[in-house]
Amino acid sequence: MWRLGVDEATLKDVYQEIQPSQLTVDKKVTEENRYGQGSDRLAWFWRFNNVSDTHEDRWMDECKWYLIFHMVNWLQAKARWQRWEEELSLVQHEMGWTVSWFRQKKDEWDRRYQ
């Protein structure tokens, strides 16, 4: 970063030295349903806006809305797929019931004929 001409204040505030403890993945972080996970803070190099360590970050908000948009689209597509899967099952059962009804009527008329 020095070769790129970054001033000393930026190096000190933004681009800090990466510690070995920041490179490990804690099991508590990878558990998706862990209580209190929303308040965890990532290491500085994983954040978009490294200067401010606040929860209000324009880049993070944009990323969150982008992810929410795609999750909603995925959930809608999944619901559509499940509805079609249910409809297919119903149609297959209805066809079986229809065939059974005609067979039952055929057997009834065969008995009447004899």
Rank of each mutant, 00 (worst) to 15 (best):
residue 103 R to E: 11
residue 95 M to V: 15
residue 41 R to M: 05
residue 84 W to L: 13
residue 92 Q to S: 06
residue 71 M to D: 11
residue 70 H to E: 09
residue 74 W to F: 15
residue 61 D to S: 08
residue 51 V to M: 05
residue 52 S to I: 04
residue 13 D to Q: 05
residue 31 E to P: 00
residue 46 W to K: 10
residue 72 V to E: 07
residue 54 T to Q: 04
residue 84 W to S: 10
residue 107 D to S: 06
residue 94 E to S: 09
residue 16 Q to V: 01
residue 64 K to G: 02
residue 7 D to I: 03
residue 78 K to T: 13
residue 36 G to R: 02
residue 24 T to W: 07
residue 54 T to G: 07
residue 40 D to I: 06
residue 62 E to M: 12
residue 69 F to Q: 13
residue 89 S to L: 04
residue 42 L to P: 05
residue 68 I to N: 10
residue 46 W to Q: 09
residue 14 V to C: 04
residue 44 W to N: 04
residue 17 E to Q: 05
residue 20 P to G: 01
residue 60 M to R: 14
residue 39 S to N: 08
residue 37 Q to S: 11
residue 44 W to T: 04
residue 93 H to C: 07
residue 96 G to E: 15
residue 13 D to G: 00
residue 66 Y to Q: 09
residue 99 V to A: 12
residue 11 L to R: 10
residue 88 L to A: 07
residue 44 W to M: 03
residue 33 N to L: 10
residue 105 K to N: 05
residue 43 A to S: 11
residue 17 E to R: 05
residue 8 E to T: 07
residue 43 A to P: 12
residue 27 K to N: 11
residue 102 F to H: 08
residue 78 K to V: 12
residue 64 K to F: 13
residue 18 I to W: 01
residue 37 Q to H: 04
residue 96 G to P: 05
residue 38 G to I: 02
residue 63 C to E: 15
residue 23 L to M: 04
residue 12 K to M: 03
residue 99 V to G: 03
residue 29 V to G: 00
residue 57 D to E: 06
residue 73 N to A: 14
residue 15 Y to A: 01
residue 106 K to G: 00
residue 86 E to G: 01
residue 75 L to R: 15
residue 60 M to E: 14
residue 49 N to K: 03
residue 46 W to L: 12
residue 104 Q to H: 08
residue 66 Y to T: 11
residue 8 E to P: 01
residue 66 Y to F: 12
residue 108 E to D: 12
residue 84 W to M: 11
residue 96 G to Y: 06
residue 15 Y to S: 02
residue 16 Q to A: 02
residue 107 D to V: 03
residue 21 S to W: 09
residue 48 F to I: 00
residue 101 W to H: 08
residue 11 L to H: 02
residue 89 S to W: 05
residue 77 A to S: 12
residue 91 V to H: 06
residue 53 D to A: 06
residue 90 L to P: 00
residue 26 D to R: 07
residue 34 R to F: 06
residue 88 L to E: 08
residue 86 E to A: 07
residue 15 Y to N: 03
residue 23 L to Q: 03
residue 89 S to E: 09
residue 53 D to H: 07
residue 94 E to L: 14
residue 47 R to F: 02
residue 96 G to S: 10
residue 12 K to L: 04
residue 61 D to Q: 09
residue 77 A to E: 12
residue 55 H to Q: 14
residue 66 Y to N: 11
residue 37 Q to F: 00
residue 75 L to Q: 15
residue 23 L to N: 02
residue 106 K to S: 05
residue 15 Y to W: 05
residue 15 Y to M: 02
residue 27 K to Y: 10
residue 20 P to N: 03
residue 74 W to I: 08
residue 78 K to C: 09
